[in-house]
């Protein structure tokens, strides 16, 4: 059943679409090397990098599509990538 004008009344319905399974490569963030410059956080096109309550940056793998922009942007190589095993 389609709503009138296909309007979406439930906010955040995009979250149901977990895009993490799209990844071929997985970015891995080494918090020991991280200098918290926020480059990865700013450049992530999907907004999947967030700061946890301890002030550490984390990657939400439910939605990370594995574009590896974060890896490219990290100035201290705290971000590396590895082949996703499926």
């Amino acid at each position: 059943m389609v709503t009138i004008a296909a309007i979406i009344y439930e906010p955040g319905s995009t979250n149901k679409n977990k895009t993490g399974s799209w990844r071929t490569f997985r970015p891995i963030l080494d918090n020991k090397k991280c200098i918290k410059c926020e480059n990865c956080y700013i450049f992530c096109p999907e907004g999947t990098i967030y700061e946890d309550k301890n002030g550490d940056f984390k990657i939400n793998y439910d939605y990370c599509k594995g574009c590896l922009i974060c890896v490219n942007e990290c100035p201290v190589n705290a971000l590396t990538s590895t082949r996703e095993e499926k």
């Binding site: 389609v2 009138i4 004008a5 296909a6 309007i7 979406i8 009344y9 906010p11 319905s13």
Partner: peptide
């Protein structure tokens, strides 16, 4: 059906994929 209310956010004018476009036209 269509209003702007920050307390009740909705999406108007979304993508109508082939699975639903025809139904909206029929509506």
């Amino acid at each position: 059906h269509a209003y702007l209310d920050p307390d009740r956010p909705i999406t108007q004018g979304p993508v109508g994929v082939p699975e639903c476009y025809m139904e909206t036209r029929k509506d």
